[in-house]
Design a protein around this nucleic acid. Sequence first.
DNA 1: GTCTATATAATGATAGAC
DNA 2: GTCTATCATTATATAGAC
Lengths: 208, 208
Amino acid sequence: MGSATDDLTARARIRDAAIELFGRDGFERARVRDIAERAGVSAALVLHHFGSKEQLRHACDEHVTSALFARKELLQGAAAAAEIQAWLADFEGNRPQLTYIARMLTGDSGAGAQLFAALVAGTRQMMDEQIDAGVMRDVPDRDVVAAHLATWGVAPLVLGQHLAAALGADEMSGELYRRSTLPLMDVLTHGIYTDDRLFRTAQEVLEP
Amino acid sequence: MGSATDDLTARARIRDAAIELFGRDGFERARVRDIAERAGVSAALVLHHFGSKEQLRHACDEHVTSALFARKELLQGAAAAAEIQAWLADFEGNRPQLTYIARMLTGDSGAGAQLFAALVAGTRQMMDEQIDAGVMRDVPDRDVVAAHLATWGVAPLVLGQHLAAALGADEMSGELYRRSTLPLMDVLTHGIYTDDRLFRTAQEVLEP
DNA sequence: GTCTATATAATGATAGAC
DNA sequence: GTCTATCATTATATAGAC
């Protein structure tokens, strides 16, 4: 169940071990010594390769972000957004990276901010295309909707532990995600309210 | 702009200072010394009153959670859920508490899990009532929808910094929240898709 | 209750050999 | 590149006086 302690270079093994432990324990509580142990090297070698714990974090940020956007290079627009969305839903195949990304998004290292901005931009572009194609309604404030849709997209990562618990599971999984897909598509397609009473009330309050 | 350095007992001032700094910096990075300074006491007194940094955290968890659910005692069901939702939207009045709650939800102290479970339960109860009243559609998997609606509800807290940045602001505010309200009500009322093409496609894939 | 001074422990980082 | 041994710093926690 450990990380691949195989034919990777020591540097790569250290980085992968760091992604796991930073993700599992958070940056502050993860110890360089433990990362070294998991990578099968000494603590000094970790610092030798990366300079400092902070720079090791940067390297992890960079590596995970690259993995996430790798597929974006080839595709564009809605297709790329869908690819990224699928990657974010592959809990079994990408768990260490996804856990790390969740920490990135809730930490304050700047990398999380950058990532989120990219997700919003991608969501916004996808909306524009889908609205042009007549698949999506022309919502009034696209920036606001894109930003919130992005938060909804990463919510299963950032709040995955709680979400899983609420649904009777130990951790997020592809199965749980699939169980959620249809009900959420239903909500996003038909709304949850039977009519626009609440909407019109809010409208009257906010736009007098 | 500091916390009320007024006629509160030292113990209460320490607790409030801790809520601010735990929220701002996170539990690990916040230092007992700084909390003491902000409360206008010595570091030793902090430990004298609370025993340890960890127990201080428990006291903060307890205090913030009580503040959040105080209004639930008097009301019930959808009314209480609406009250709590309103409290969670009052960024100006409750910023330190809200920031602390965001840390609770993304930390792994157990208090966040408990809080989220309560929010899901409240959301679920509200759904039941609104569906009975004919205000809300009878969605297929209520547990799943309630859990995700709860994540959407706290997303502006947990990802507030990024959300604000995406909308050109420094931090979440009541203004930003109000700007979001109507577009989100619109999404939740009418959906974002023009028809149920995507929904039916998903249905065919997931329920063969 | 509140302080000053100090003990103790943990951990990131460095020095230097191989 | 990699290790062992050690340093230096930081922060929680305690002792004991007032």
